[in-house]
């Protein structure tokens, strides 16, 4: 008996709840306006004119256009949850989640995190009417490097020229400072390596002999002169 009574109470409550809910549903086709403002901190007046012409706020299939002060209105939005997106060619704005609560006649807004869209955190809440600032400018273009001496020096073509040239001067010096035993070993191994290429004129060899001790340039020239004579 008691159980039957309880059952009726639950049934009654359920019907009551259902009627309230259906009333709510009937009410909820009321239309709302979402208001806000876009702030462009680093834009000149000329830029602003162009920006306002090309920027639009979308909520589903509804558009909001910018007034000359940057404010916008998106009209005729039914109650529910929506994503507000700012279509601006120059700046990226955050996505905003709008929740219109028909019961409280209230509009709540918060930054939308696409990875965890249903998580509500305190610092993501935005004040309504919205004031939105761009997150970052949209840089579509690759930056061309300005001319400077380091970029010239680091240019692969210049490196190609300079590094081997430097090596040509530095290596013989290193060879010269090595102890004679090691030098001899190295020469031997080099000769072994290049035994088949004897006929090839060796410029490094030439430089080694030229700068790495032995006869100096002047002496060579003198010797040559003598020979010609």
């Amino acid at each position: 008996m008691m159980q039957a009574y309880r059952y009726y109470v639950i049934l009654f409550l359920y019907t009551l709840l259902y009627t309230i809910q259906s009333n709510e549903l009937a009410k909820s086709n009321k239309l709302y306006q979402i208001k806000g403002e876009l702030v462009f901190p680093s834009a000149t007046v000329l830029d602003l004119k162009e920006l306002f012409q090309n920027t639009r706020v979308t909520v589903g299939s509804r558009y909001g256009f910018l007034r000359s002060d940057g404010s916008f209105v998106v009209s005729n939005i039914p109650s529910g949850s929506f994503v507000l997106e700012v279509n601006c060619p120059k700046f990226e704005f955050p996505l905003v989640r709008i929740d219109i609560n028909p019961k409280a006649d209230r509009i709540n807004a918060r930054r939308l995190d696409l990875i965890k869209p249903n998580q509500i955190s305190q610092d993501a809440t935005l004040i309504y009417p919205l004031t939105l600032m761009p997150d970052r400018p949209k840089d579509y273009f690759e930056q061309r490097q300005p001319w400077n001496i380091s970029s010239l020096l680091m240019n692969p073509m210049v490196l190609l020229l300079v590094v081997p040239a430097v090596l040509m001067f530095v290596l013989p010096k290193l060879m010269g400072s090595m102890d004679p035993g090691a030098q001899k070993d190295m020469e031997e191994s080099m000769q072994k390596l290049q035994s088949g290429k004897d006929k090839m004129p060796e410029i490094a060899d030439l430089f080694t002999n030229w700068f790495g001790g032995g006869q100096s340039g002047k002496e060579v020239r003198k010797a040559l002169k003598k020979k010609r004579n």
């Binding site: 009321k30 709302y32 012409q53």
Partner: peptide, 16 residues
């Protein structure tokens, strides 16, 4: 002249 919106009025609070 510029194509800017000057104002927008909608049937706020009305039904579809």
């Amino acid at each position: 002249e510029s194509g800017h919106l000057q104002w927008e009025m909608s049937s706020e609070g009305e039904y579809e």
